[in-house]
Every structure is written in structure tokens, then in C-alpha cells.
Design a binder for these strands. Structure first.
Ligand code: SF4
Ligand code: SF4
Lengths: 161, 161
DNA sequence: TTATTATGGACATCACATATCTATAATAAA
DNA sequence: TTTATTATAGATATGTGATGTCCATAATAA
């Protein structure tokens, strides 16, 4: 139940790209140096981000990466799902056991198609709910919101003088 | 970002132990048969649950497992943390990079010990928040709450006749 | 004493994360 | 057009953790 390092790298890379006083493309070399991650590995991550439309990439001289959309439209959830995939946090592995009958189909003797979501498994329901709570929070935090927070801090610090 | 199968098994095992019309200990054989998981593997999981005080175990004839405390005091979070461990969902891997200076220590030039939690990393703050939201939800759902829900369903179904 | 049951350690296997290297394609500048 | 530069994709290596089995040992009740 941990996020991978790749997610860590992706977030930091995007934060770098989102930095306000930056208007030119930034190449893998600069990113690699800034994050302290090998160019090879970071490339793969950036490629994934490009394939999912988070960043744009242009090869050739003075090429590099830039955000494909405003930083306030790139949520933590977006990044995490690109890198970690989109599977459910919980996937039942033994729906053929006796347990299943007891918990999920207790009253599902009626094979009616009326409300397919109603007769759902109770365990999965809890896990689904948990996932939705997590996702909602991650949707509300963006690359921009972190950058704003950093700016606010710098501002506060300047005033303290 | 997925829960392991072991967590799945643990939850189902506990749901079996928590079933109301059951007053004797239940052995690994019965559990294994009910869940459709090998005795060997399930043993390990039950041992973990015992070490963390979720269940009690007694060896010997007619031995087996039983819940160590009421099912309403066993939360989903308890079970998950026993099986998956208690690490943070996000652990920074490059706090020595340039990025770090920018995001976490923007205004941390002052090495005062006043508020150690205040100058925390902004990325970790978001992730921590996400984790707390998830945990809170998982704390609010217990083995008992699922059993209650199952009972309610059975009841509804009986009435529909 | 004996049959039964849980426990712990040693392995085996597999999937995945992490990481590197190389060849290729695309692009801008010359 | 040519060239230097940069991203991309494939192959490969390595380590770690999840999953699973087997066996010897300890504990307990009958
Ligand atoms: S009750 Fe839910 S989690 Fe359990 S076996 Fe059935 S579908 Fe899977
Ligand atoms: S800013 Fe936070 S996440 Fe990033 S390197 Fe510093 S401590 Fe780690």
C-alpha cells in the first residue's frame, strides 16, 4: 500500500515544469539534474506522462517538455493514475468461495436485472467507498495548488524580515 | 496501489469468525475450506492477526481461532495495517535534490525549533492528508458493520416474500 | 499418553518496480 | 540538406516483495 518512486519522480518533474518563471521547454538533462534521477529512467516516466496528455514533448535542438495544460488542471490523482495504473484498490480474489454466497448474494436469489449495483458485494462496497474518499481528496489537490503554497511560504518568510 | 490478497483473506476470515451463530473455536481446516485458500498460507495470515491481538488462538484438540475482541472493535484499518504494515503511503526518496530546497525549505533558512511540523514538505503534506482521509473512512467501518449490513439484507429479502 | 492443532522456519516461484543501455525517429538550427 | 540534439521504444538486468508449499516443533485437550 505504497506509492511507487516513479510517482514521486513524476510529481516533482511536473512541479519543476510548472514553475512560474519558466517559459522555454526543459529537456531531460535539466530534469535529471534537478531531481537527481538518471536520464534513462526519467525518460520512461516522462513518456508515460506524454502518452496520457499531461505533458507535451518536442525532440530536436532546444526541445524538451512542457505542461500540456495549466497546472491547476493537473491533479494529484491524474498523475498517480498515469503512473500506477487505474486498477481498483481492492479486487476480490475468491468470489467462488462459500463466503461469497454469504456476503454478496445473501438475498440475491432473485436473478432480476433491475438494480445491478444494489446486490453488490458488501466488502467491495466498503473498499470502493474508501477509494472514492481517497480519490476525491487527490482530485482537489493540483500541481498549481502546491506551487501556490510554496509561493505563499516564500512571501511570509520575506515579510518576517 | 492495491491491497494484497492476504488482506482479502484476512478480512474474510474475520467475517467468518464474527458470524453470530458461532460459539466454538474454528480451526484452520474449516477456514481454509470456507475461503478456498490453502491451510499453509492461511496459517501465516492468522498468525499475524494473533500477534497483533486481533484473534486468539488455542492449539490442540478442538482448538482454533476466535475474535480477541468484539467485532465492532475490529476496523478495516486495523486489519489492513496488520497485513500490509504501517509505512506511509508516500515516502520521499530524493530529499537531497535541488527540488527539495525549493519546495520544502523555501523559507526554512531559520533553523529554529519552534514549530517542527510547520516547515514540513508541501508534497508530503498533501499525501499525508490523503492518507488521513482514507484511514478515517477505514476506521469507521468494522467487521461488525459488514455483518450487520448482511443481516439487514437477509431480513429485507425475507420480507419481500 | 496421544491425537490434534497452531506456529515458525526454510524454500520455491512469480510479478513488478527500478534501472541501464542502445538503436531509432523526429526536430530545429546550421 | 546536413548535422547536432533530443525524445522514444525495446531489450535486458536486478532486486524486492507477494504468494504459496512443506516440514519439524510446540502446545493443548481428550
Ligand atoms: S463477498 Fe465480496 S469480496 Fe468476498 S468473495 Fe464475495 S465478492 Fe469477493
Ligand atoms: S519537497 Fe518533499 S517530497 Fe520533494 S524532495 Fe523535498 S521532502 Fe521530498
Amino acid at each position: 500500500m505504497q506509492f511507487s518512486k516513479s510517482t514521486d519522480y513524476a510529481l516533482h518533474a511536473l512541479l519543476h515544469l510548472g514553475h512560474p518563471d519558466r517559459h522555454h521547454n526543459v529537456g531531460i538533462k535539466e530534469l535529471s539534474a534537478t531531481l537527481g534521477v538518471s536520464e534513462s529512467y526519467l525518460s520512461k516516466i516522462m513518456s508515460k506522462l506524454r502518452q496520457d496528455g499531461i505533458v507535451r514533448a518536442v525532440p530536436g535542438v532546444n526541445g524538451g517538455y512542457e505542461l500540456a495544460r495549466p497546472a491547476e488542471q493537473i491533479t494529484f490523482l491524474d498523475v498517480i493514475q498515469v503512473i500506477e495504473g487505474r486498477q481498483q484498490m481492492f479486487e476480490c480474489s475468491n468470489s467462488k468461495s462459500q463466503q461469497h454466497q454469504l456476503l454478496a448474494e445473501e438475498g440475491a436469489a432473485q436473478p432480476d436485472r433491475k438494480r445491478p449495483g444494489q446486490g453488490e458485494c458488501l466488502v467491495e462496497q466498503v473498499m470502493e467507498g474508501a477509494q472514492q474518499h481517497l480519490y476525491q481528496y487527490l482530485r482537489e489537490h493540483t500541481i498549481q495548488s502546491v506551487l501556490d503554497e510554496a509561493f505563499k511560504r516564500r512571501h511570509q518568510e520575506a515579510n518576517k524580515k
